[in-house]
Each structure stands twice: as structure tokens, then as C-alpha cells.
Design a binder for these strands. Structure first.
Lengths: 210, 210, 210, 210
DNA sequence: AGCTAAGCGAGACGGTACGTCAAGTCTTCAG
DNA sequence: CTGAAGACTTGACGTACCGTCTCGCTTAGCT
């Protein structure tokens, strides 16, 4: 996935997959030790017991390297049927929370900034994540519609933002403790479900016109 | 607010306030032109027609400078009574959306990363923003309670995350267009209000046990 | 002489001449310790207690730095009258020998290679050295002609090559000991004077046609 | 001559002599195109249609490779009797001039620098060239002495330096045109012969004491 | 009015990381 | 074992930026 172009399986020494692993491990360790900004390519190379050239052969820039290492290839790729809309959304929410709490502390904001700074990275992020996420949510909504659980069908992007955003905000904007995440997620689930059972701003209209 | 220590009112030439303005303008312009990562102190100084020392006399680091320039001193500081919980939340939401769309494109993620990288900046962010935000939300909830609009009182942090998170996600995680923000905010308002009128996980329980 | 452009004596912090000296000393020391090829900019900077940028502000490349440091500004610039052609030539020869034995062992061949590899350096070498050398030799020949010491006026370039070449060859092609240089120079002086007192290839003609 | 160790004539595939030629040609071409410093092993291999390993199997280092390719195996090895000292020296001079003008422009200074930087190369240079050169010059002087052409027998090293040095200087120190070399060599021959017919510093003494 | 401390633009300074590139070694597959 | 291909480690290069310091000058405000 990170390989720029896997050499035509003809001549030449093949890439050593142990090098990929060593780089990934070194990045993970160093991110945990020195943080996102403190990470240097020289240190990654040294820690991995690898030359800098071997890194740049795999990742065009430091930012791409971190991106490749931190972001797992599968993300919200599967949407197993849990039997109800509520259970499906809870599963999605759990996976979102997981993907934001597993990387070393403080790397997500750095990564996000780099993604916004580099169009190439942004494209890759889009194709790798957002697409899968959109697909999964659509599937879940389709199933719920088939079950007759939906009064109204919410905008997929809005639902996506509603699920991902608060978790991100809890962790990185409000700096609330990850352990207290359940406080958020249970409330969040209610809120999300509310979107599926009432008119598309009905509450607001009612509340705004007493 | 940005002055590190206003000179002992004794002798010496006073700070030139035109310098502060020139720096702020240069930062704004350059952020728009070259992006967050492309900003250099030398260029800011040159654009502002100012020496680098004059900048560092006012801001301890590059990150602090951007922080000082981008973040307005007032943010959610006031919570005028709009007559109903729904209207109050709508106002808050509007202010949040505004604060995230006015800075030059792509600066918010960079700023957030820097805030997470520097404890000093994080402290300032906390005191300047989160505190005011918490206070404002509490006030609004108090008023709503007094009006009898609350069935249950939601966790303030969760409500905060629910309001701020989706807007942030819409703009910076999903890269949806700022013009389409109303699509999100109207749905979001419904969802937020849902938290105030039903049991703390009632919907989930009901949906989970048909 | 090495300064690229001495800042208009207007604003800005002036160059610190101690930095120039520190660089020159470091280069000299390191050339003696690790040789021409073993010299690295990082080590020069470290030894001089100076940032690399300070070096590159003064010298465009590593090669130029060595050139600037090794080649004294004055070389064969003066041609004091020693009273006779022979004495003048002996003085020139002594200065040539001196300029080739004072730099750290083995730096001259490296420097010469770099001069041939870089047109810019070649130009500077030309203007700085060859010109002065030509001028000086011409002067000496003029004086000798005025004294009536010249039967024939030799080609200046040929005389130049005849004086410089053997010393260079002795030291760097044949690797003979510098202490034995007098063995060469005394013979060389005879040979050079021979060019001034006989017809232009007269000896060859005589020898070739006995 | 260039092979490091010819494989034990035991089993295995024999060296392909076409590879040697391809390497030599590639080096010659590339030296002419990109110069001494611009030459890279990767490019040599590519141009020769050969793997880098095949080069290193034949030459221990880049410097040795160039040395092996540029320096012909025979150099001043033979000293055919031309009938007179003058003619013999003229022949030697011609061969010297030839050996310095045939390699691609500017490679000689680079090669010389490398020889001084690497003791192993220096040894090979010594044994391959200087020895043969000394032997040849001694032979010529012996013949001249037998013919009675020598008033005094000059130091062989000094004579060597006197012959080689000016040619080198003309081409690589003064950057005079190779076409004009005859201007130098004719004068040079006179000067060299002067050493053989007068006292070892007689002219200098005479000139110095009028 | 003069003194003085601080401000000011300019830019050199030490330091540190980046990404590139070359040398020489090693590893695969094919013959 | 030779050969081509190319990945590997090592380490220098030259660039860029940060935050500090130094220069010569200007500008208030206290005495």
C-alpha cells in the first residue's frame, strides 16, 4: 500500500519487507516518545536500523511516511449487520472511537494538519477513508430503511459529521479524557437516532415557534 | 493580551501599535497565500515592513503569533437570551460556524496541531476558549431549566462536543463545502435538542429492545 | 576578498570577522588532520564553532571555501628589483616553492582538481593568480632587457611553465621530498637562464646537427 | 593488470572480456561528457550495460577504475636510441605531451588528486610510472655519457621534473592551449640540454657575480 | 532641553532537520 | 560462479527556517 511502484517482478533485489516493518515500528515508538513535531527522519532511520534512502524509497516525504504508518488499511470497511439501526450505529461509533484513541497521544491533530497542507495526502485520505466511510454509512441506512426503521432519511454527510465530529472534539478540541468517552457516545447515539425518526428540523421548528 | 510584559512604565520608547497591526495583517495575508506550513517569520517580517525582533518582542514563538492573530479575544463570551433553548443553541451554533469559517482556509487544523504540541499554548487555549464556552453553555442550560424546557440535563461537555464537533468534522475531516453548512446545522440542532427532551439513553434502550 | 557582497554599509548586523578567521583556521587544521577528501562542512562548522549557514554566506560551495582559505591574496604580486635577472628569477622561484609547500600536505592536487571541475573557480584562479604571475614575469623580463641581460626574449608563458612546472612535478608528480627542493631549483635556475642567453632553440639545433 | 584476483581457475563461469571493454568505453565517454567529478558508478554501469557488481569485481574503487582505464599499461617503457641526446629527449618529451593530451579534457588533475588521496593508488602509480620513467631517463643519460655528450650528469629526478613539469603546468596550471605546446617544448628542450653541458649552477653563479 | 532606556529595521548568528545523492555491499533470479 | 538489476547502509551536501543577537538609528518621557 505504501510501495510507490512495486518493481516489475523481474530483475533486481526485491524490497525487504522487514525494512517496512522496522520503519513502521520505529515511527510508532518515536511518536509516542517525542511527539509528532519531535519526530525526525534521521532518528527514525537510526531506530529502525535502516538508511534514510530506504525510507524515502517507500515514502515521498516525512508526512506521507507518518500517514502510511498511522492509518490502517481497513477503516470502516465492513458493515456487518447487527440487527438494528441502533446497534449498527453503535458499532460504527465504537470503531471511530477506537481509530482515534489507538494512535500515540497527540498524533491525530498533527496528521490532520499535514493532510490539509498537502493536496496529494488529502487525495489519498479522501480515497482511503472518506469513501469507505460514506459507503458504509449508506449501507447501514439502506438496511435500516429496508427494516422500516427510518421515518426520514438523513443526509449521509451530516450523519457522518455527527458521528465522527463529537468524538474528535471530545478528544482533541475539549481535551476530555478518553476514559470518559462513553459519557459522550451514549448521548451521541441518542442524538443520531433522533435524526432518523423526526422531520428534518421539526424539533427546531416546533421549539422556535411556541 | 498579546504583550508579554508591558515595559515598566519607566523610560524608553513605547511600543508602536502600528507594528502590531502590520504583523497581524501580514500573518492573515500570508496564511491565505502560502498556507499554514508555508508561513515563515522572515516573510511575515518582510511583508509587515518590520524587523523580526519586533515580532518576537510581542509573541514568544511563531505558533503563539499565529494563535494570537487568529483567535479573536471574544469567543462565545456572551450568551444573550434569545427566548428559547432552541434559539440560544442556534445562536451558539452560528457563532461556532463563524469562528471556523473566517480564518484563512486550512489554518484551523494547523493551529490545532500546534496547540497540541505546545503545553503553554494548550493552557492559553483552555483558559481563553474552553472556559468561556463551558460557562456560556451552562448559562444557557440554566435558563432553559428555569423555563422548564429540559426533561433531562445533558452533560455540558457532551453537549459542547456535540455542537462543535460536527461543524469541525464537516469542514476539516470530511472537507465538505462551507456553503453547505446549513445542511448540517439544521440537522444538528434537532439532534442537540433531542438530548434535552428524552432520557439520557432512552432512545438507544428503546431502539435496542423492540 | 572572499565576501560575496559586502552589505551596503547601511542596516543589518555586520559580518563578524572572527567568524571568517574561525572558518579559515578550522579548514587549515582539518585539512592537515583528515586530508582534502576527508574534509566535511559539518566538521568545519563544528570546529569553528559556527553554523553552516555562516560558512555558506561567505563561500558558495565547499570547493570555493577551500580555495578562499588556501590561496593567499597576494601571490607574486610584487617583483622587487634584485639587481640581476638571475636574482629576480631566484626570488620568483623561492616564492613559488613557498606557495606550494606551505599548504597542508596533499591539498594542492585536490585544489587543482576542483579548479578544473568548476568554471567559476577557474575564472577566479585565472584572475587572481595567473594574471599577477604574468605581470610579474613580464616586468622582470623588461628590467632584464633594460639591463641588456637578454640575448633573446623568451615566451612569457613558456618561462612561467618552466619555473612553476618543475617545482609542481617534483612535489606532486614525482613525490620527491620538499627538503631536497634545492637540488631542483639550482638546476632549474640554470635551465631558465639558458633560455635567455641563446637563440630560441639554438641549442637544440646545435645538438641536433653536430 | 586491472583484475583484482583472477578467479581460481576452478569451476564457474569465466569472466566475460566484453564486460571489461564496455566498462572502459563507458568511462572514457562519460569522462568526456560529464567530467571527472560528474562521473558516477551507476551511470558507468548503465552506459556499459553492466551491473555495478561486475565493475567492482574488477576494480576495487571508483578511483582505481578510472586509473585503470585512463593509464595505458606502457608508458615511457621503451627508450629506442635516436642517435643523440637531443633526439632522445625530444622523443621523451613528445611521449609526455601525448600522455597528457589524450585523456579527456580535465581528467588528469582529478586523477592526480585521487592518487594523492589514496596510498594504494599512489603505490601503483609509483611502480607503474615513476619507475619506468626513471629507468628510461637513466638509460638515455647512460647512452649520452657513452657518446660523450655530457659535460655534467644532471640529477635524474631533477631532469624528470624539468621535462614533465612544464608540460603539466602549461596544460593544467596555466591552461594554455594544447595546440601551442610546441612553443613550450622547443624552448624546454634547450633548457634541458643546458643542464647537460654546464656546471650544476655555473650559470647562476656567473650571472649572480658579474 | 537634554538624558536615557527602550523601541525600531535589517540581517548575521548557531543550530537543526530536510530531502538528495553517491559509494560500495548485498540479494535475488537467470544462464 | 558470472551477470544484470536494483535495494541496502552510510554519510556528506546544500537549503531552509527558527529564535537570538548586534548594529546604528529613532522616539518618548523623566529630570
Amino acid at each position: 500500500m505504501s510501495a510507490r511502484k512495486q518493481a516489475r517482478n523481474h530483475g533486481g533485489r526485491p524490497r525487504d519487507s522487514r525494512v517496512d516493518d522496522a520503519i513502521a515500528s520505529a515511527v510508532q515508538e518515536l511518536l509516542a516518545e517525542v511527539g509528532y513535531m519531535g519526530l525526525t527522519m534521521a532518528e527514525v532511520a537510526a531506530r529502525a536500523g535502516v538508511g534514510k534512502a530506504a525510507i524515502y524509497r517507500r515514502h515521498a516525504t516525512k508526512q506521507e511516511m507518518i500517514f502510511d504508518v498511522l492509518l490502517p488499511d481497513q477503516f470502516l470497511a465492513v458493515a456487518p449487520d447487527h440487527g438494528s439501526l441502533s446497534a449498527d450505529l453503535a458499532a460504527v461509533l465504537a470503531e471511530i472511537a477506537d481509530s482515534m484513541t489507538t494512535p500515540p497521544q497527540g498524533t491525530i491533530p498533527g496528521l490532520l494538519a499535514d493532510i490539509h497542507a498537502d493536496p496529494a495526502l488529502r487525495d489519498r485520505f479522501d480515497r482511503k477513508y472518506l469513501e469507505a466511510q460514506r459507503r458504509t454509512l449508506t449501507e447501514i441506512l439502506d438496511r435500516a430503511a429496508a427494516r422500516g426503521e427510518l421515518t426520514t432519511r438523513p443526509d449521509p454527510a451530516a450523519l457522518n459529521a455527527l458521528l465522527v465530529g463529537p468524538v474528535f472534539a471530545w478528544l482533541f478540541l475539549l481535551s476530555e479524557s478518553p476514559e470518559q468517552l462513553p459519557v459522550l457516545t451514549s448521548a451521541l447515539l441518542d442524538a443520531a437516532l433522533a435524526l432518523t425518526s423526526s422531520g428534518p428540523s421539526g424539533a427546531a421548528v416546533q421549539a422556535g415557534a411556541p
